[in-house]
Design a protein around this nucleic acid. Structure first.
Lengths: 338, 338
DNA sequence: TTGTATGCGTTATCAT
DNA sequence: ATGATAACGCATACAA
């Protein structure tokens, strides 16, 4: 026995008024007598009526939907930010379409077209491969970029953690703990966030009168289905083999840091005595690995909040008075590895 | 300079045909000359036209959208399944609305209403608090439950890992490694998956002529913002204090297992010599903690695939010929903790 | 092969 | 205070 979805028309019939009146009552918009209000509301409750937001969107030219492009939702940082965003937006009456781009440009484009067809009111883009623009879209749409450089700096808002600060305080923590020869493990060096973290690393060295050694920058590139952790470990072991040792390592994310821990274990280096390590992201594993990992924590709550308020503002006011570049402080979490 | 979204009407005007013809060309439906086809397609390409799926949905009474209810997307198992599902559905031309229920019934209901208003074609529900039904919805909608008992066993499809098997092989692994006194740590004992895992545990004991001791069932309940890991640890430490020791522990998920590891460390028990541990979920932390954790891996790829194919089938064929209860095998991953 | 007209469920304008 | 109706963008039955 299939149930049927009830429309405003039937509500009108059942309450003996016109559809216009029903609409007015529902949206509390325009004038109507208290009597009809009660009558209509009663029927609505009885029939369990729910407004068809598809029709409403079409008519209002507003979908109350926002799209969110994310490289990989099983990454803990992304998952957390997305979760926060979705929750906030839902409270505000918006629904969210989450799109996993898999760092695949083609997929990203396909999603963009799909989202345009869905008349999304706004778009949030988290990280990803290259500069982001909505040039391919027919309509100008409010856009928030998180940790990703937008092509159009005029009309889009960028929100990011203070990656420079992160690199700086991570490195200073190592220096403070006595490290003199600090390596940095870099993964996606084309990301602006990676560049900033590297810059922070360099400046922390300089400030503390330590020379920057280009050989201490270890670049990692993921290949096939070998994990970043494994690749980082191997790269480090390679250095060790050649007699290059470090007393401190700043890894651009926690997975890489774990690789460093594994490498150290293989060479029976004592962490933190022989080697100190700081990661980035405060991934759950940083808390549970052994030794537990000092790391830089991004404030994903604030990031999400700023993203949502800015986006909703942009939707309503057309970008007036919105800070175009918002930088969120990060913090150091000290654990056993330092 | 705001761009404007172009409609089928303008395509019609620009190509000198009627909207009907344009529609026919777009959907390759009905008859038209090769000449007009080219003409129309050219204009579409030039204008970068994208069909408005909102309008299409309204007209077709089909949104090509499916909703997915998930308790907590930052849980790695859920994140993986959701990611797989979203990816598969996107390939099939469906978009996915992911709803984080936060294990909050009220929120769940609110989402359900929202989804109904969006005319979703189908619904996937992953785990959650209690039996799930769509009684509150006005329309009968194809429904897939993953790891959650549906209220209506007639019309809904349940897909779940073989939790019984998981409990069984986890326990047998411990027994095979010589454990005689095996505890089980249980978190949400009201979930059918938890019950099944417990049943598997009991049967494995029985099969191996070990008595089941009710005192060895350690129930955990999360309170406030103390992590499950911490609570599990404390519960275990409590047992140790009272002189109750075990040589094996089966934890119903990896976070709890980590708690057990911490407790063992506090009591200077050597894992796996004094105490062997098996977890559940193959959470990334199980691979990176120390000692690394033996665990039961759910086949989230297959779960996602079955969910999608069954759902799409249900949408198209009205539940004919679909297996109503699909059980997916799990596997044991052996690591250092056993 | 192509065009005209209608309706999907809403909201908004204009009457009354 | 309320009703009739147009329009949102699209697909389709019916005509031509």
């Amino acid at each position: 026995m299939n149930k049927k979805t009830v429309s405003i028309k039937e509500i009108a019939k059942l309450s003996g008024v016109s559809v216009a009146t029903v609409s007015r009552v529902i949206n509390n918009n325009g004038r109507f007598s208290e009597e009809t209000r009660k009558k209509v509301l009663k029927v609505i409750k009885e029939t369990n009526y729910e407004t068809n937001s598809i029709a409403k969107s079409l008519r209002m030219r507003k979908s109350n939907t926002i799209g969110i492009l994310v490289p990989d939702i099983s990454n803990s940082f992304f998952a957390n930010v997305v979760q926060e965003i979705e929750s906030i937006l839902f409270e505000q009456g918006y629904s969210t379409i989450i799109c996993n781009t898999d760092r695949n440009e083609e997929k990203e484009l396909a999603y963009l077209r799909m989202l345009e067809g869905k008349m999304i009111d706004g778009l949030i883009v988290i990280s990803g491969v290259k500069e982001f623009g909505t040039a391919t879209m027919n309509k100008t749409i409010p856009l928030i970029c998180i940790d990703r450089k937008p092509q159009d700096t005029q009309n889009t808002i960028i929100i990011e953690s203070n990656h420079y600060q992160g690199g700086f305080i991570a490195t200073e923590e190592l220096i403070k703990q006595g490290c003199k020869n600090i390596a940095i493990i870099i993964h996606r060096d084309f990301l602006s966030s990676s560049k900033e973290r590297l810059a922070g690393y360099k400046d922390a060295l300089k400030k503390n009168n330590l020379a920057f050694n280009p050989d201490n920058v270890i670049h990692i590139k993921a290949t096939g289905n070998v994990s970043r952790t494994e690749i980082a470990k191997q790269a480090l072991v390679e250095r060790f083999k050649q007699g290059e040792f470090f007393d401190g390592i700043f890894a651009l994310n926690d997975r890489l840091a774990i690789g460093a821990i594994h490498a150290a274990k293989e060479y029976q280096l004592n962490i933190p005595v022989d080697l100190k390590i700081v990661g980035f992201d405060n991934d759950p594993i940083s808390k549970y690995c052994s030794p537990t990992l000092s790391t830089i924590k991004q404030d994903n709550r604030v990031i999400a909040q700023q993203a949502c308020t800015s986006l909703l503002l942009a939707i309503d006011t057309n970008y007036a008075e919105i800070e175009k570049h918002q930088v969120i402080p990060v913090s150091l979490i000290v654990r056993e590895s330092t």
